[in-house]
């Protein structure tokens, strides 16, 4: 399960929309046991492409150091699909570096963004639930 605070969820989707027409990407840091994200690092797409992404290597190093300096660690990656479903492409599966990571895909194909998360080990792709934290905290005046 991936647990994403609402502010970070919105930041992630906004980064993906801002990146159009190219794919956008970034990395997630947090607790590897609970899957709770506490930091989100939007990064540059070194591939600068609407079809593929590569997390900019310098941005990745900076994110890794910042996460470690704050007592946390990288636990996942997100990227957008500009014209396809929120499902990992064969390229995503073939290049997934770490079976313990969360692979978040943000599809911008339809008018409303669709966010899904997966675990990828070898050729196996397993979807996991995404919980947006703090979503229900709405006060209603009577």
């Amino acid at each position: 399960m991936l647990r994403l605070p609402r502010a970070l969820y919105l930041q992630m989707v906004a980064h993906c929309i801002t990146g159009l027409p190219e794919e956008a990407c970034g990395v997630l840091a947090g607790d590897p046991v609970s899957g709770t994200v506490d930091r989100l690092y939007p990064t540059r797409n070194e591939a600068a492409s609407a079809r593929v992404f590569t997390v900019d290597s310098r941005d990745l190093l900076q994110a890794d150091r910042d996460a470690e300096g704050n007592g946390t660690q990288l636990i996942g990656v997100f990227h957008s699909h500009t014209h396809t479903d929120a499902y990992p492409s064969p390229t995503d599966v073939g290049q997934a570096p770490d079976p313990s990571w969360h692979y978040v895909v943000v599809s911008l194909r339809d008018s409303h963004p669709v966010v899904r998360s997966y675990r990828i080990g070898g050729d196996l792709v397993e979807e996991e639930s995404v919980v947006v934290l703090g979503q229900a905290a709405v006060a209603v005046a009577v």
Binding site: C25, V27, A47, R51, V52, F53, T54, V55, S57, R58, L60, L61, D64, V77, H79, P88, S89, P90, T91, D92, Q95, A96, P97, D98, Y103
Partner: peptide, 27 residues
């Protein structure tokens, strides 16, 4: 990133820190 330096020929000196990270890419 050593790809922007001399790749495998990049020299290392006393006190340098080398970091390895998985390249994160997909489609």
């Amino acid at each position: 990133d050593v790809r922007y330096l001399e790749s495998l020929e990049t020299p290392v000196r006393e006190g340098d820190e080398v970091s390895l990270l998985p390249a994160v890419a997909g489609g």
